[in-house]
Computed example of a mutant assay.
Amino acid sequence: MPQLPAPAYPAEVRARLETDAKEIIARYPGSRSALLPLLHLVQAEEGFVSRTGMAFCAELLELTTAEVTAVATFYSMYRRGPGGEYQVGVCTNTLCAVMGGDAIFDALKEHLGVGNNETTEDGKVTLEHIECNAACDFAPVVMVNWEFFDNQTPQSAKRLVDDLRDGLSVEPTRGAPLCTYKETARILAGFPDERPGAVEATGGAGPASLIGLRLAKGENPRRRVVRPRDAEPRDAGARDAGARDTGPRDAEPQPGSEHLSSHDAPQRTSASDPAHPAGPGHPADPDHTTGPAAEEGE
């Protein structure tokens, strides 16, 4: 059975969208390059990319509806059906997952009574699990309409969605002020965000990600000795000599130290697992006597 033509926008909506669409198209040397922002534009109108929106994009860009549909269904930031006012995404990629992202996602599913890509009955929140959003320094991360909420826990995430549903003011950890999903889509279409505080808002990477940048600039970040859990502080030079270090844990290694990490040299004991220390002649330590005798200087 042939598919019926997509319904048209009302005349006043069509006129407004055409004005915005022509502004977008004029930015590009080839009109078809404007397809991605045009899809955000029609998503800003309805909250998702409808058949009407795709037909509108195809007409203005002189593309087939099949070409537009292929793009709209490829990218996850385009919705294919109605959703909530706030898209709450929980990162469940590797680092966020092991830091608690999976627990947050499970807690929100139970708390909201929805599954992945489902919307609460009040139409406020759509929950989804998302892939890495380049914020691993702040794991686990929750995003609301693509704004960051860092270092979350199941409890803080539940408070967050409750505040969203209650209409309370919610401030992202960093970046621009929070706005609705439709407002976000219009910004992604390339129109200026003129809300107070949006222009001045800044994000940024965390300390771990910035170490490489500091090294590239010739800076010398403060070095830190990594030690096994429950081990008493030692500097890098004293470790090889078996001596105790009475200085602070963050003290600078002594000049001439060869090892800046506990992973750079074999350990005499399995200090990271005190319940199962390596014994004499253990395969992990064939050349050393381990245990209390070794700690006392053999």
Rank of each mutant, 00 (worst) to 15 (best):
G203E: 03
P196G: 04
S33H: 12
N220G: 10
A189L: 13
E200S: 14
R224Y: 10
L260T: 09
A157L: 03
R16P: 00
R224N: 08
M99F: 11
A134M: 12
P277L: 06
E232A: 03
D20R: 15
S262E: 12
V141F: 01
D245P: 04
E183G: 10
G218H: 05
N116F: 11
Y75C: 07
A251W: 05
E252N: 01
E45C: 04
G89M: 13
P29N: 01
P82D: 04
P228F: 08
S76F: 10
G47D: 05
D193Q: 07
G203W: 07
I25M: 13
E85W: 07
F148R: 07
C57S: 12
R186Y: 03
G47N: 12
P228V: 03
V90Q: 01
L61S: 08
P172K: 01
E18G: 06
A44F: 10
E147L: 06
R79G: 09
P283M: 10
S270M: 12
G84M: 02
S33V: 04
V141N: 12
L17Q: 13
Q152L: 07
N145Y: 12
L112W: 06
E171N: 09
A58N: 03
T290H: 13
S169E: 13
S156D: 04
G256M: 04
P82S: 13
E45G: 05
R224V: 14
T153S: 14
P266F: 01
S257M: 01
L260C: 07
V225F: 13
I187M: 14
G197F: 12
N220S: 14
Y9S: 07
P255E: 10
R227V: 15
E128P: 00
D122F: 07
E296G: 14
V90R: 01
C136V: 05
F105P: 03
P207L: 15
T92W: 03
V13Q: 01
C91K: 05
G279N: 08
P233H: 07
R165G: 04
F149R: 05
D137K: 11
R223V: 13
A107K: 09
M1G: 15
T202C: 02
L160W: 05
T173D: 00
P266I: 02
E194Q: 02
G123C: 02
V141I: 12
V90L: 04
E258H: 08
G291T: 13
E295R: 14
F191R: 04
T19R: 13
G297F: 08
E219F: 11
P248Y: 07
V225A: 07
L60P: 10
D264Q: 07
P10S: 12
A55I: 01
A11L: 09
A103C: 09
L17F: 13
V161Q: 09
N151C: 08
N220I: 11
G89D: 12
V170H: 05
E252A: 15
R14M: 08
G113K: 09
P266T: 02
A97I: 00
K124M: 15
R227P: 02
V144E: 02
E252K: 01
R224D: 00
V226L: 11
S156Y: 01
D240K: 06
Q254N: 06
P29Q: 06
E62H: 10
I130V: 09
V144L: 09
A70T: 04
E183N: 05
T290P: 04
Y86H: 05
Q3H: 08
I211N: 08
R234E: 15
V226A: 06
P277W: 08
V225G: 02
